[in-house]
Design a protein around this nucleic acid. Structure first.
Length: 225
DNA sequence: TTGTGTTTTACGACCTC
DNA sequence: GAGGTCGTAAAACACAA
């Protein structure tokens, strides 16, 4: 199996991520963790390259600040679904590369760093694992299909060869048979009577005339006196 | 602009440890 | 019981017409 900490480029919109996604090591993530007390994604200075997701980031932060540590039941009902900001996604991707499972402590830390609900982080990891699995299955399918195609090509080629050889055997057998026939039955000479087969060794079924005559000359008598 | 296909976020049901 | 997968709904997004 492939290392789950791969960079598969699912975040296609983020050029920054594209350029960094080849660095699949824990150092990558470590470099993203902010060691001082201020969360790395709080404040406008951290918001670069938001493209179309402009408003979501602030909304997420607001939610986190108003909510408690974990899932706020009213959150999903009152708010519309919003995409995470590219920066948040990038950070989560890096974290996923390091470890695709999420321990509670890490979940809380990521949530704090990103200004998200811990539940959102958990769900993001769940979905990310699902995407990873799907991608892996596709890869596996492609590889299996390749093997199958190769095997089938081999089989077809061997099948053809086999048919060819079988045909060759048939022709040779026919040739052999006709040669054998020719040996047993040579061509008759012109104007010659065909020879009768010799039947000397065969007992005659019908007795000849002489034996019948002698039998009749001497009448059979059962009781002689 | 709109219809449509794809991706992402979020959740419930169920499973495993 | 916590956290996992799986299936799915729905919002967000991309893009052709």
């Amino acid at each position: 199996m492939e290392d789950p900490r791969v960079c598969d480029g699912s975040n296609m919109n983020n050029a920054l991520f594209k350029s960094e996604r080849l660095l699949c090591s824990s150092e990558v993530l470590d470099s993203l963790w902010i060691t001082n007390s201020s969360p790395s994604f709080h404040g406008s200075t951290s918001m670069v390259n938001f493209e179309n997701a402009e408003s979501s980031f602030f909304t997420q932060i607001d939610k986190q600040e108003n909510g408690n540590d974990d899932y706020d039941g009213s959150f999903h009902q009152s708010e519309k679904k919003r995409r995470l900001a590219p920066d948040q996604v990038q950070f989560l991707e890096k974290s996923f590369e390091v470890e695709n499972k999420l321990e509670p402590e890490r979940k809380l830390q990521l949530a704090k760093e990103l200004g998200l609900q811990p539940r959102q982080v958990a769900i993001w990891f769940q979905n990310r694992r699902a995407r990873y699995k799907t991608k892996n299955l596709e890869k596996e399918y492609d590889s299996l299909k390749q093997s199958y195609d190769k095997l089938k090509a081999d089989y077809d080629s061997h099948f053809k060869e086999n048919e060819k050889l079988k045909n060759e055997v048939r022709l040779l057998r026919e040739k052999l048979l006709s040669m054998d026939k020719a040996k047993r039955k040579p061509e008759p000479l012109d104007n010659a009577e065909p020879k009768k087969p010799k039947l000397s060794h065969v007992s005659p079924i019908i007795p000849d005339a002489s034996s019948v005559k002698s039998f009749g000359a001497r009448p059979f008598r059962l009781f002689s006196r």
